[in-house]
């Protein structure tokens, strides 16, 4: 297999990070299997969703390629950040708390992301899609330089789709629902990638309430007002008008990672997003993204803190990125 011929020595990167585009020097290819980035708030069911979708594809005899970017959670996948960066070691050796350690681990992994892209591309003719699980702490990905680099490196290589997993059981109050949807909307604006929302845990609470709110603005407004003891808030009301606009163009899928409900609809939505990537993203984005990834990588290198990390990389001897199958060969 292509990846097993790759360098097996544990090299240490000389600078932070090596160009994430190295693996995709031939530019974005809209025909490759899409990569699906699964985002969502802590405990929304990202990992369960990834596992369920994986099982669903296995049952169809078309197993996906799975990448885990959560340094804090062990889990059998094809590429695991934990094989490359030791989270506990990052924590103890650098006196970092759990959050700092997650951010640092992602930064460290980012230095090897060109290799991930290479592996993913090598597999893309044999797998239907690549599924990427992200850290529980969503902002470690959505508001970090490494999250930006990873997202843009993928998108400038092949079709990339963002799924926002929403915990239906925790979105039943109008305020939390609004908060969730505003966050989803902010991810849309940050990534500008094909995007859809999954209402997970449908087995606990039917997300029909969400669909009603999304199609009927007045009804949501009433619910919001009731929940605030009958007194309304100008800002919240204006924001619900904004969200009304957001919902117009939004794809949503109801699913349950527990029962497996909705998995075929998820696959259909991913297909639509892949088409959207080809039509809207390829033409104008390829060049722009390549430029931006370079700029972001440059900033990361220049960042004083990242300068320190270069020595951390050496001290920790960050492992090479490997495909878990490598071992069996």
């Amino acid at each position: 297999m292509a990846e097993s011929t790759a360098s097996s020595s544990k090299q240490v990167p000389s600078e932070m990070p090596s160009s994430p585009l190295a693996g995709s020097s031939d530019g974005p290819n809209p025909d490759l299997a899409p990569s699906v980035i699964v985002l969502g708030m802590a405990g929304s069911g990202k990992t369960s969703f990834v596992q369920r979708l994986t099982a669903h594809l296995h049952a169809k005899k078309t197993p996906p390629y799975v990448v885990n970017l959560d340094p804090a959670v062990p889990y059998p996948v094809n590429i695991d950040i934990r094989d490359t960066v030791k989270y506990k070691q990052v924590m103890t050796e650098y006196g970092l708390g759990p959050n700092g350690a997650i951010l640092t681990s992602l930064n460290l992994f980012c230095t090897r992301f060109d290799k991930v892209i290479e592996l993913v591309r090598a597999r893309s003719s044999t797998v239907p899609l690549t599924i990427i699980d992200t850290p529980g702490q969503i902002e470690a990905f959505t508001w970090s330089a490494s999250g930006t680099i990873i997202t843009e490196a993928l998108a400038s290589s092949h079709p990339t789709v963002v799924i926002y997993v929403c915990d239906s059981a925790r979105a039943t109050s109008p305020a939390t629902f609004m908060s969730n949807m505003l966050y989803a909307c902010s991810i849309l604006y940050r990534t500008k990638l094909p995007f859809f929302v999954v209402f997970n845990k449908a087995d606990i609470v039917r997300p029909t309430f969400a669909q009603r709110w999304m199609t009927d603005f007045e009804r949501f407004d009433e619910a919001l007002e009731d929940s605030r003891g009958g007194y309304s808030n100008d800002l919240a009301r204006s924001l619900s008008l904004v969200l009304d606009e957001f919902y117009c163009g939004l794809k949503t899928v109801i699913c349950s990672a527990l029962t497996g409900e909705g998995m075929d609809e998820v696959l259909t939505a991913i297909d639509e997003c892949k088409q959207q990537y080809r039509d809207q993203y390829i033409p104008l984005y390829a060049e722009m993204r390549a430029k931006k990834v370079e700029e972001t990588a440059k900033r990361l290198r220049e960042d004083a803190k990242m300068g320190d990390l270069t020595s951390e990389v050496k001290a920790l001897d960050v492992g090479r990125v490997r495909d878990s199958d490598d071992e069996n060969e």
Binding site: A175, S179, C185, Y189, A236, L239, R299
Partner: peptide, 24 residues
């Protein structure tokens, strides 16, 4: 972090993130 809001779309994303915390 200002590094993350260097374009209008990103600035909007930042505002939306802030709003999602503040609304509650």
């Amino acid at each position: 972090d200002a590094h993350f809001v260097l374009e209008p779309e990103k600035l909007i994303a930042g505002a939306l993130t802030a709003l999602s915390s503040m609304i509650s």
